[in-house]
Design a protein around this nucleic acid. Structure first.
Lengths: 108, 108
DNA sequence: ATTATATATCGTAATTTTACGATGTATTAG
DNA sequence: CTAATACATCGTAAAATTACGATATATAAT
């Protein structure tokens, strides 16, 4: 009961995987890019932007939110979603470190 | 027949999603980190390193390879896998751009 | 040629994801 | 209070992923 199924991996590995997984679907990448493009935290005209049902978009938003990639704040009758920089900074740092490490070694 | 299911998304969105998806499992993150750690493109002592069957590791390696995150070269009877910098550089650049874009806007 | 080693692939069961329509909930407008 | 709007959640079917053991393949060693 006490150990979950990812217990053989480190917390960081699990976290990175969670974030990466959230971005592992074209629709969710498109949502992120749309949030960037509209230059303000616009809510769900995303439904109009993408060829998916409202409930599906809502599911994708939940996944992105769960991974910490976006955050939403209630704004009257609608909800304002926007990019959560912190998590993007984290994953960016992770990749930067990987690249720096790879460069130091001579391989294949 | 002619259009695949991701046709509503751009090629880049699909590619980014593919790469992110490949990293969307703790075991695959662990594989990447192991390849980095051994400081040379060691093959599959990965099987000994992770609590997974050989066939499962092979499957994960295939996924990573398909996304371009690792490359393998035959080395006698074994195969030498190592990080493919190019793809990591690509995804890193993508995130860097996102962060740079987010910083310019005032949101939530 | 035979055997051993390293890895890939196959077949398959269990689980998870994706997508949708239908329905629920909460806020705003009238 | 009632209706409308925006979003979330539920139920569910189809597809994809994950994991394994068994088996295939290909090279190296004998």
């Amino acid at each position: 009961m006490s150990n979950n199924k990812t217990s053989h991996f480190t917390e960081q590995q699990t976290k990175i995987a969670r974030i990466a997984k959230a971005l592992g679907h074209p629709a969710r990448v498109a949502i992120i890019e749309h949030l960037l493009k509209v230059n303000a935290c616009i809510c769900s005209d995303i439904v109009e932007e993408l060829p998916l049902a409202q409930s599906t978009i809502s599911q994708h938003l939940k996944e992105l939110k769960g991974a910490g990639l976006i955050k939403g704040s209630i704004e009257g009758t609608s909800i304002c979603y926007c990019i959560d920089e912190t998590t993007f900074a984290l994953i960016n740092q992770y990749f930067t470190t990987i690249i720096a490490t790879v460069n130091k070694q001579n391989c294949c």
